[in-house]
Every structure is written in C-alpha cells, then in structure tokens.
Design a protein around this nucleic acid. Structure first.
Lengths: 209, 209
DNA sequence: CCGTATAGATCTACAGTGTAGAGGCATGAG
DNA sequence: CTCATGCCTCTACACTGTAGATCTATACGG
C-alpha cells in the first residue's frame, strides 16, 4: 500500500534530526530512501507537503502519549504535562518549532492537544467564554518559549559585557545587574513561569467564574 | 563613505517587505542597487550578515521611537507601548519575526528595549531578582503572539468543521463550542492577554515585593 | 605629473536547490 | 493478448550562495 509515503517521511525526519532542517532536500531524502528525487512526488506533492507531513508525524507521536497525560484529575498536572511534552519535543526536534508557528491546529492530533488544554482550563473553573483565549495565551507562551530556547534567543548571547556594564545608558540593567551574572537555570525558570501562569488561570477563574 | 552598505540594507528591506523573505536573494538585492551580485560582498560579508543587518535596521527604528515610549511615568503604559510597538513591527514586517527568535538581544537597540522592560517591571514593584525572568516571560509571550499572528497559526485554519463538530472525540471543544464560532477580535484578545499579564506582574510584586 | 597600491566592481564557474516534462516499465483489468 | 494505470527514471531549467581571478578607478607617495 502506501507504506512508501511513511518511509519517505520517516527518512526525512531522520535527516532533519541529525542534519537540521536545511539538510532536508528532496535529493537527500530520495537518496536515503534509495530512489531518484522525482520518485518522491507521487507520494508527497511538494516539499512543503513533505514538511507538513513531517510535522504531522511528530504531533501524532504526541497524540499517542496524550491519553496518559490526560489521565490525571488535577488540571495542573495536565497543563504541566502539555508544557513538558511540548518542550521535550522541541529539544528533540528543534527544526520543528518554526513549522509550528505557521500551521494552525487542524490535524486531529493537534486538535486533541488543544482539547486537552480546554479541558484543563474548564476544570480549573475558567468560564467557557474565556477558555479559548486562555488556551491561546498559554500555548502561545509555551511556543514562544520553546522557539526561543531551541532557536537560540536565550543562549549564548546576552554577553555580560554589554548588559552588565554600560550602566549609564541602560540604568535598569544596572539595577538588576546582580541577578544577570549567574548562569540561568532554564528548567527552573520554565517551571516558575508555569507556576505564574497557573496563578493567572486561577485568578481568571476566581474573577469571572 | 559606507553609505553603500545602508543602501544595500535598505534595498533588501524593501524587497523583503513586498516580496517576503524568500524574495531576498543576493542577485535580487544587487539588481535593486544596480550592481552585480558579487559587489555586495565587500559590504556585507554574507547573506546571513545581510539578514542580521536588516533586522538591526528595523530594531534601530524601534530604538528611535523608544524614548517617546519610555516617557510615561506609568509602567503599564510603557509595557503596553513595548507590546504595541512589537506587534505593529511584526504586522509591517512579518518576515522579521522568525529572525527575532534566533538572534539574542545583543545590539544596543535590542538591549535598550530590554532595559525599558526592566525599568517598567522595577517600577511595578517586582523584586530585582525576579525582573529578568519576568522580562523574558513577557517578551516571550509577545514574541510568540506576533509570530503566531503573522505566521498564520491563528488564521484562517481552525475550521469550524473540525473543532465545532466531533464533540465526542473532543469533549472540551463541545463544551466551549458556543465561543468558538464568532470570528475572533485579535486586537481585543491581545489587549485582554496583556491585562492578564499586567495582573500577573502585580501579583508577583505583591507576593515578593 | 607619474607610477603604484588599494579597494571596489565584474565575470565566470561550481555545487547546490525544487520541480516540470517526457519516456520507460511492470503490474493488474478487460 | 492488449491496454491502461501508476510508479519510477532521466534530462533539463531556472534558480540559489559564493569562491576565485580579473579589471578598473581612485587616492597617495615621490
């Protein structure tokens, strides 16, 4: 049957994981599958289509893990599970993050993830009218975080030279200089951010719920 | 003098704005300047260097506007000014957003923007030790939002067919279905999110300040 | 004023890219 | 057996970024 398509997508995933998204050329994928470049087109339509398929395959993996994640009664641990899953996916497949921003959640797997978040927010007591917005708020933050982390916005720039010194041009930097020096524990910061977002959700629930 | 470099960057910006980032090729830029492709290299080192220069030029524009934005005494309006400036920059130059994720804030203009946010958070009463984290939280959300908006994650997918129906597979969608139908007012949602983030900042200030 | 150094622009060429188009070949249907 | 359909191959085209050699015009020291 159409196992060929899966084979192609799988090969493309492998290449992306080890050589980055830039390494995914039709020729490279074709060679990995053991076929000429043009032989991919009956199965994939386009290079864009191939990229979409790759992303879909990844989200399907997440979708499989989702039932376990949605098992808990506590909405907090489910929200946390989403955040952690997204982050570890991004760490494992950095190239996928840019794709996430450009494709809306239309595949069943992606919608399933959104549904998980909707459920968590409802259980938290958020009024239904606010649920879609808060879901977008949380997932937008999470996406922004993982994009920053895997894209390099956090690392290794931020040279102490520019930010620590130059206190006159950047007075607020001078005021917080002491907390700019130590290397950041990104795991802890992510957790702290999620704590704050949890509180934000709670306050919306209390305010309007 | 080195006005040639600015001319090149300017031409590249113009091309990116009207044809997208994909339209920015060395040949296209060269033609716009009225010169052969290789003539760009004494001024720009690389294509990556050109892209960096383009982003820098944009952030410099923001930097020029910043003093006005930082004029207010109210930290809330300054934070709002940052958010609005970032968003309108993204609407005007969608291609720039992906670049933002990959380059840390090292240019003076970018650091200046961070400094503006640090100052706002300090004025809000956030303890200095929490300021860098909260700055990253806010700016990460803002970046995530503008990337989603200009990248297409919000638009025009989200087909009511998939999300509205299929209530059995996606129970939480069914519960909020009434609020999924009307078209979203993105301006209002962005404003509401920023309201919530303001409250988050306040609560951190009260808790630990 | 003249030779020369230097920086900028040019031309050519190479190794890539995605993919359109035409032809081949084998398998299943009538 | 004939034919059609779907997958594959090969060739070719219009691109991409940029290395390397060459040419030119400008500015400077004698």
């Amino acid at each position: 049957m159409s196992g060929k398509r899966e084979e192609i997508v799988e090969a493309a995933l492998a290449i992306a994981d080890e050589r980055g998204l830039g390494g995914v050329s039709m020729r490279a994928v074709a060679q990995a599958v053991g076929v000429t470049p043009m032989a991919l087109y009956p199965h994939v339509k386009d290079k864009a289509g191939l990229l979409d398929a790759m992303l879909g395959r990844l989200l399907a993996n997440v979708g499989e893990a989702a039932p376990q994640l949605s098992g808990s009664q506590d909405w907090r641990v489910r929200l946390r599970a989403f955040a952690d899953t997204a982050r570890s996916l991004a760490m494992g497949h950095p190239w996928a993050v840019t794709l996430l921003f450009s494709r809306p959640a239309v595949t069943p797997d992606a919608v399933g993830t959104v549904d998980l978040l909707y459920g968590a927010l409802l259980d938290a007591g958020v009024p239904p009218g606010q649920v879609p917005r808060l879901e977008r708020l949380v997932s937008t933050y999470v996406l922004g975080w993982i994009a920053s982390e895997s894209g390099g916005r956090f690392g290794p720039g931020d040279p102490r030279g520019v930010r620590g010194r130059a206190g006159d041009a950047f007075p607020a930097h001078a005021a917080v200089a002491d907390w700019l020096l130590p290397p950041v524990d990104w795991d802890a910061e992510y957790a702290a951010d999620l704590d704050d977002l949890e509180r934000l959700v709670e306050s919306v629930a209390e305010r309007d719920g």
